[in-house]
Design a protein around this nucleic acid. Structure first.
Length: 496
RNA sequence: GGUCCUGUGGCCGAGUGGCUAGGCAGAGGUCUGCAAAACCUUUUACAGCGGUUCGAAUCCGCUCGGGACCUCCA
């Protein structure tokens, strides 16, 4: 591809040139949500990061298959491998079917993603939809001697894995001995040979709602297994990019890597990408800390820490203004600044879409301005190529914006840029903003404007200025709306 | 305790050896019925101390502060 994209690979801890296994195809897997509750803004940041990657890869010509799963079973509450299933617990609390819990929060998740203009993935597989694959994977691991059954549950044998050349801990940078020494005493360790061993299959307790038959017990799969099975099923036993939040690096991704390596005998993922956390007053936003913001609290401004409402695109812009590997602190002041910045860009978008190139006699091309436009465009690509540095990319948009505004106010002539550079400016600004960064115009509710028009209509009518009255009627008519003069009130209606 | 990240101007936030990041806010100007917008100019930086270097916000060391992970987490 034309653009030399570099990404920071957690596995090697350095930026590497991105080279797909089978260009132009790219396989991208991202760990999706566990649908037992509403997604909060911290979750949104991660999906936004990989949405940007998906958009950029597509933009620079790759054919991307983007797989993002829905975890609908197996993710346990609390520490250790013996907690309750998160979804099962919620189902009991609300006295509904687990699958109702799953459906409700999946719907919410998809709606929230759409609100933020986060594109749907190519495939959105669920864990419960891949039970056969997961059971097969467990069988395969037992067959290779890398997993063992204990009291109806099956665990991954880390000691054996390492003895056979694996290096558990290499992704998250952990030393096995340290991990062993620091392991906390958790319940349910008795079944394991080694406290670090993690569950591949769990035998269901009698009160457990979600259960499937397997050769070992009626039970359910371990949390890490689904991602291994679904990523490899749709992307191959080795695929290009695996993404997720930093907090999934250990143990989740470490376990995924070990499983994939064990089952298929090769490094499952070429590039591991991790996005950093969203913080509130310097602390990670998380449900357990009680400092999380739900999207609707933001849109309505109803959260107690917010002074006003903020729109989805404001938040998207806000998040893109930082680099995905840095923590980002969420605050009123920062959001207000983002709101203004986003609106300036949105205005620029409106303007440039309406501008056409017009040649002008006697206006010479201004080489310096042409150079500046070309440089901003080049620098935008350079920024995105440098590990998706959207913050620097946005800075380039503002330098293009300056030219758009000057053109709009006739402070410079389009001819000064020349047709080619004008076209570059227009195409680039629109493509960068809308297609790559996913920032779109937010239409405002115009009903108050209609009410204002009706007020003018009434005044003109009282003044018997019927030409104005007819004019206003024609504006409404053009939108298939009619004005209805009633005895005590004037209102508009849809034309029937 | 272990591993790792981090400290940039009023706020947010890029930048990792020499080159104006950017946005918001502040100041002045151009324009303007008023206002807004836009454009131009501009003020406030690299936690502290020491070292390496011709040169350090950037590399190294120490000190202080903040944070993440160490089987809940995006």
């Amino acid at each position: 591809m034309a653009q030399p994209l570099k990404v920071y690979n957690t596995l090697t801890r350095q930026k590497e040139l991105f080279e797909p296994i089978n260009p132009p195809y790219v396989g991208l897997y991202v760990c999706g949500p566990t649908v037992y509750n509403f997604v909060h803004l911290g979750n949104v940041r991660t999906f936004l990061t990989f949405d940007t990657l998906f958009r950029y890869l597509t933009h620079i010509g790759y054919k991307v298959r983007y797989v993002r799963n829905i975890t609908d079973v197996g993710h346990l509450v609390g520490d250790g491998d013996d907690g309750e299933d998160k979804i099962g617990r919620m189902a009991k609390l609300e006295k509904i079917e687990p699958m109702e819990v799953v459906q409700r929060y999946t719907n919410d998740f998809r709606a929230v993603m759409a609100t933020f203009n986060i594109l749907p993935p190519s495939i959105e597989p669920t864990a419960t939809g891949h039970m056969v694959e997961q059971i097969d994977a467990v069988r395969s691991l037992i067959g290779k001697g890398l997993a063992y059954e204990s009291n109806g549950s099956v665990y991954f044998d880390i000691a054996r894995y390492n003895a056979q050349g694996g290096s558990y801990g290499k992704l998250s940078g952990r030393v096995l001995d340290d991990l062993l020494n620091e392991t906390r005493d958790l319940d349910g360790q008795a079944e394991k040979r080694n406290p670090l061993d993690f569950a591949l299959w769990k035998k269901a307790a009698p009160e457990h709602l979600m259960r499937w038959p397997s050769p070992w017990s009626n039970g359910f799969p371990g949390w890490h297994l689904e991602c291994t099975c679904m990523s490899t099923k749709y992307l191959g036993k080795q695929f290009d990019i695996h993404g997720g939040g930093m907090d999934l690096k250990f143990p989740h991704h470490e376990c995924e890597l070990a499983q994939g390596q064990s089952i298929y005998g090769e490094e499952p993922v070429r590039y591991w990408l991790h996005s950093n956390m969203l913080t509130v007053n310097g602390q990670k936003m998380s449900k357990s800390l009680g400092n999380s913001f739900l999207p609707h609290e933001l849109f309505t401004g109803s959260h107690h820490l917010l002074e006003q409402a903020y729109s989805p695109m404001t938040v998207r812009f806000f998040m893109l203004q930082s680099h995905y590997r840095s923590t980002l602190d969420f605050s009123n002041e920062a959001l207000k600044a983002a709101q203004k910045g986003y609106r300036r860009l949105a205005n620029g978008l409106r303007i440039i879409k309406s501008l056409e190139y017009t040649p002008a006699e006697g206006v010479a091309a201004d080489e310096k301005k042409q150079q500046e436009v070309r440089k901003a465009v080049d620098d935008f690509y350079a920024a995105l190529n440098d590990d998706l540095n959207t913050a620097v990319g946005i800075a380039q948009l503002f330098s293009l914006l300056k030219y758009i505004n000057m053109l709009n106010l006739n402070q410079i002539q389009a001819a000064a840029l020349g047709e080619e550079v004008f076209g570059l400016l227009k195409d680039s600004f629109i493509r960068f903003t809308e297609n790559i960064l996913g920032l779109k115009e937010e239409k405002t509710d115009t009903s108050a404007v209609l009410d204002g028009m009706l007020t003018l209509y009434r005044e003109y009518k009282e003044q018997k200025q019927y030409d104005k009255v007819d004019q206003i009627r024609s504006y409404f008519k053009a939108q298939s709306l009619v004005i209805k003069d009633m005895k005590h009130r004037i209102d508009w209606a849809y034309e029937e």
